[in-house]
Structure formats: structure tokens, C-alpha cells
């Protein structure tokens, strides 16, 4: 369907442009400005060029945080995408079960992010938490996310999966509901197994929503801050210090504005380029030049 060519449409877009530009351009300019200067005191600064970029790029703690971040986002996508699809497949298609399961599933998504961290502190502490207490005292497995790096990782992953799998499930469910009944009928007539029905009908038809889910989960898990900050504070040691946590540490807590700004821009470029690459790749899989 060709769209109507009309440049007056810009008038409809201006409010959005102004409001987003106000919140995006000015701060972005500020950040770029900072990243090129050394601020000695308020109103006193020296132009330092790419100095901060060099410093940040050679910071081994940043490298560690970056790998940690990739591992985290990779695991998140690996676990949440299939799990979300499974849940969507199991959800009822009609009757009172539909609103009931939608409400239940959407609930974690509407909890403020630091409350999520709080919930999981209370849930996993070895002394008072159901999970922590159960692991230590009932199953006899020592578990303490404040002392062991592995336990901290497990806790953060559990929290992340608990928190965000519902988003994937909801999107996948929407995709499933959009498949006309005739497809399922045809599959039954053609003698397709449940597996073939999934692989040749449901999965291809969910492609659009799964692309959105994949991108949203990649972006948001790559930007994760509040939940692990509340839960582990980045520790023990630096074992759960993800990029955002490290950035806030530098920019807001140590008030190193120059390196912080350079870090921000590098971070932004990484998210942007990966999202773009994924988007292009998923688009190509969708078109599927090969049969």
C-alpha cells in the first residue's frame, strides 16, 4: 500500500519532534561537551580532546563490565525467549482464563524496578527469605548472594527471568491470537503433528512480535540498572557490576564527569549498533531468500 506523499505531514510530527528533541538533543550535547573537557571546578574547564575516550576504552573494569553485560543479555535472551513462547502456548484461548492469566502475567511488569530488587532481597536472604532459607536449611545447599559471586549471578538471573519473561509471553500470546483458525484447521486436515504446526505455522506467524520482543529484551537487559543495584549493589566484589551500574558509579557517585560522559556515549553507540545489526538480521531471516 503506497502512502500519500505530503510534506505537510511534518506539522503532525512537530510536537513529537520538539518534545523528544528537548529531552534528547540538549542532554546529548551536554554529554558530548563533557566528554571533551576536564571540568576542574564549576565554570572552570579545559578542552582535552579524545583523552577521556582513550582512558575509558583502556579501562579494564569497563572491559569486564562489558563482557559481563554481554553474557547477561545473552543468557536473558536464551532463557526468556523460549520460556515466554512456551507460556504463551500454554495460555488459554477463551473463557475466563484469558483475563485471569493476562492479569497474573502482567503483574511483575507493573512493579517499580527497585521494588523488584526489594522483593528479591526479601525472597532470597539466607536468614529470612523463602528461597535462601529453603536452599540452606531444607536442601542443605549453601546459598548466599551477598557472599558468593555465583549465587549473586543466579539470583540476578532468577529475578530478571521472573520480571521480564512475562513481556515475551504477552507479545508471543498476541502473535498467536492473530493466527486465523483456518491455519490450524488446514494443519489438522494435512495431518501435521503438533511440532510441525508449531514450526511451520505458529513460529513463522509470530515472527513480527518475536522480533519486537527480542529487541526490547536485548535493549532493556543491556541497560539494566535498578534491580541488580538494589539487590546486590554490583557485588560481591564487582561480580554483578553491569555497564549501567559502573557508569553511575563513575558519573554520579565519583562525579567524574568527563570519563562518565565518554563512557555514556560509547555505551549508547554499542546498544545502537547491536540493535541495528539484530534488526537487520531478523529482517533478513524474515524475508528468507533461502528456502
Amino acid at each position: 500500500m503506497e502512502k500519500w506523499p505530503n510534506n505537510k505531514a511534518w506539522f503532525l510530527v512537530i510536537p513529537v519532534f520538539v518534545i523528544v528533541a528537548f529531552s534528547a538533543f540538549i542532554p546529548l550535547m551536554t554529554v558530548i561537551n563533557y566528554s571533551l573537557q576536564d571540568i576542574l571546578a564549576p565554570g572552570q574547564s579545559v578542552f582535552v580532546g579524545t583523552e577521556w575516550y582513550k582512558e575509558i576504552l583502556s579501562d579494564y573494569r569497563l572491559h569486564e563490565a562489558l563482557w559481563r553485560q554481554f553474557l547477561f543479555s545473552g543468557l536473558v535472551l536464551l532463557i526468556e525467549m523460549p520460556l515466554g513462547i512456551l507460556i504463551a502456548l500454554a495460555m488459554p484461548k477463551r473463557g475466563w482464563g484469558v483475563p485471569a492469566s493476562l492479569v497474573t502475567i502482567a503483574l511483575p511488569l507493573l512493579i517499580p524496578w527497585n521494588t523488584i530488587g526489594t522483593i528479591w532481597i526479601i525472597f532470597t536472604r539466607p536468614d529470612i527469605g523463602l528461597f535462601g532459607f529453603g536452599m540452606n536449611n531444607l536442601l542443605g545447599i549453601p546459598f548466599d548472594h551477598t557472599a558468593s559471586s555465583l549465587d549473586a549471578w543466579i539470583t540476578v538471573m532468577l529475578m530478571e527471568v521472573w520480571h521480564w519473561t512475562p513481556l515475551v509471553a504477552l507479545l508471543a500470546y498476541a502473535g498467536l491470537r492473530a493466527i486465523p483458525e483456518a491455519y490450524y484447521q488446514a494443519a489438522r486436515i494435512d495431518g501435521a503433528s503438533a511440532w510441525s504446526t508449531f514450526f511451520y505455522i505458529q513460529l513463522p506467524k509470530m515472527r513480527g512480535v518475536l522480533t519486537i520482543a527480542f529487541l526490547l529484551r536485548f535493549m532493556d537487559s543491556f541497560l539494566i540498572y535498578a534491580e541488580p543495584f538494589v539487590l546486590t549493589g554490583g557485588g560481591p566484589g564487582n561480580s554483578t557490576t553491569f555497564l549501567s551500574i559502573y557508569l553511575v558509579k563513575i558519573a554520579l557517585l565519583q562525579f567524574d564527569l568527563g570519563p562518565g560522559a565518554a563512557f555514556s556515549l560509547i555505551y549508547f553507540v554499542i546498544v545502537l549498533s547491536f540493535s541495528f545489526i539484530f534488526y537487520q538480521a531478523l529482517l533478513r531471516v524474515g524475508k528468507g531468500e533461502t528456502v
Binding site: A182, Y183, A186, A192, S193, Y200, G288
Partner: peptide, 23 residues
């Protein structure tokens, strides 16, 4: 059926072969 039902990811050949292969 009234509206075309296709297995989007398959070639035309595989679409036609699908009911036979399933059996």
C-alpha cells in the same frame, strides 16, 4: 478453505508435498 492457507516458510513444492510427507 475459503482463504488461502499456506505454510509461509516453505516452497510451493514443499507446501504441496506436506500432506503426503506427514503420512
Amino acid at each position: 478453505f475459503q482463504f488461502p492457507v499456506l505454510y509461509d516458510t516453505m516452497s510451493v513444492f514443499n507446501n504441496l508435498a506436506f500432506p503426503l510427507r506427514n503420512r
